[in-house]
Nucleic acid binder design. Structure first.
Lengths: 330, 330
DNA sequence: TTGTAAGCGTTATCAC
DNA sequence: GTGATAACGCTTACAA
């Protein structure tokens, strides 16, 4: 491995000077700088990040914690984070909790070790009180997650607005029997609460009384969606429309509805959440709420970098807008 | 940050002894070992990987290079790699090339820096001759990719068998006008070749002459699929079945076919490749070739670890079987 | 503007 | 069985 000393020898300077060139110090004679750069080029020198990390403050790695990368939502989020991070000179470490608390803590140790210089959490398995101590070792930014503490740097979309827009849309289409079928991904914090309140608000405003048997929570997967359809079929008083918390649930619903001979949207209108690629391909294509995932990832990185650079944050909460994408299922 | 010296002090031993406990050296008195372990526990000590990397051979990080994590195939692959890696005590660094040669080389530098101890390449942007020199710095395993050199450790599925099974299936369903629409992901190496040959072989065996205008290559996305459908509609002599190289193309085809009022599979049979979740949800559901992605990821990790441990490889090529999943689209 | 030297946390080598 | 000590490659006071 070619190191800073080899470069120094080749360039005929001290390793200090080489280090200065690497780190763009201001006061170096153009001559020596050129010599050093040439030597680096010739020898194919790449600074050793382990050494830099060990030595000092240098930051080059950020970690993202997600529950499952195979969930397209998180794949897109990680994609955005990786790209923005790379653009700004950071490597991205992907950490998958698979919803295990212990794995999450193991990954938080990255911060302690200075293996990662900052962490974006797009999943929270443990209580914030477990996680909070790690902030002593480096910045943690929440992305699409909620905790009760208000001072935790957070990027998220406006879940209330998204849900409200979806329910309004159904009401405008003439529906009054609207099922609500969601499930905060993995937490009991604010996400569900926001959605719940938006559902209630939209219905109240339209003078519709809520039917508690049409409220289903903790549904996430395609399988869950299929089961929900079975529930609906068994009901004496069936809803005419369903708001779902993810395109996955909506897909499952749709599959089961098709099997049961129901016509969508005539017999049952369905609305998803996320606008995953699948939404467009489904038959009928799925009306859904588009989340600005890329923007969310980019913002999370930018916020994290600000924190790593010790810059003051203009705001601790960044709320992004959502968009209703109307297709054939409603 | 609590380090090995703090632990040594707390336990009343030298840091050498602490290091020995960490690394499970044989000859340590049970007493001291216990003291050290207790001290580590009390102080919440975690060895600093940067220091370990800088110092020595310790291996804890593997990198996976993929073109795009948002492609479900790679998401599932990365998922499998991350899980198997974690199980064996490795962290996974996800590297996304976005099909840029320079980004790939930048990520290969991880090996040079000893930031990663081994690399799994599920994409190859550069020529192997560009990549080969990096093998001097650590092992590289190819996953789902081909190069002409035969001695490169490789895990992949049997593309020939998969394609052959798909075409055979269509023939058995009575089709004789079979379009072939694929696109090696990003390489001109063997993957396409294998598929091409399988297509030819299956047709020849059935006594069907090949219609060159029904052979389309370099198609990858949903958009591509839509465009292919337009091509088909413009043909005087239309195929009655299409083999596609990915579920994405198949999805696009299906969407466009639906819009054009074609019935699937009666007017046109479609077969995909990968068995992504979308395949089951499509309407009609998609017949496709299932790739053992998880197994592939696991094997790649195992092979890489063998190489990192300097163990001899029993075989340099690991070919995994595929499975035809018959659904409604054929 | 440049160089010397100390030290980041760990492990390998050598001595006891 | 245990402990000093010297590296690993880099950055940063402090000197010159």
């Amino acid at each position: 491995m070619v190191n800073i000393i080899d470069v120094a020898r080749q360039a005929g300077v001290s390793k200090t000077t080489v280090s200065r060139v690497i780190n763009n110090y201001p006061h170096i004679s153009p001559d020596k700088r050129r010599q050093v750069l040439e030597a680096m080029e010739q020898l194919g020198f790449v600074p050793n990040p382990s050494a830099r990390k060990l030595r000092g403050q240098v930051t080059t790695t950020i970690a993202v914690i997600v529950p499952k990368i195979v969930n397209p939502f998180f794949a897109y989020l990680v994609d955005a984070i990786e790209q923005e991070g790379y653009r700004q000179g950071y490597q991205t470490l992907i950490c998958q909790t698979n919803e295990h608390k212990s794995k999450e803590l193991a990954y938080l140790d990255l911060l302690k070790n200075k293996q990662a210089d900052g962490i974006i959490m797009a999943a929270i398995e443990n209580n914030w009180s477990e996680i909070e101590p790690y902030t002593a070792f480096g910045p943690i930014v929440l992305c699409n997650e909620y905790v009760n503490q208000s001072d935790v740097p957070t990027i998220r979309i406006d879940q209330h607005e998204g849900t409200y827009a979806a329910i309004r849309h159904l009401i405008e289409r003439g529906h009054r029997k609207i099922m609500y079928c969601t499930g905060g991904l993995f937490t009991d914090y604010g996400k569900d609460k926001d959605r719940n309140q938006a559902y209630q608000r939209a219905l109240e405003e339209a003078g519709i009384t809520i039917n508690p048997s049409w409220i289903l929570v903790d549904r996430h997967t395609i399988e869950d969606g299929k089961k929900v359809m079975e529930l609906i079929l068994d009901m004496n008083d069936r809803p005419t429309a369903v708001f779902t918390g993810s395109d996955e649930i909506a897909s499952g619903l749709m599959m089961a509805a098709r099997k049961a001979g129901l016509h969508i949207p005539n017999d049952l209108a369905i609305i998803g959440f996320d606008d995953q690629p699948i939404a467009e391909v489904l038959s009928p294509s799925l009306t859904t709420i588009r989340q600005p995932i890329s923007l969310m990832g980019k913002q999370a990185v930018d916020m994290l970098i600000q924190l790593m650079d010790q810059q003051p944050l203009s705001t601790t909460l960044c709320k992004l807008p959502v968009e209703l994408v109307i297709r054939e299922s409603t």
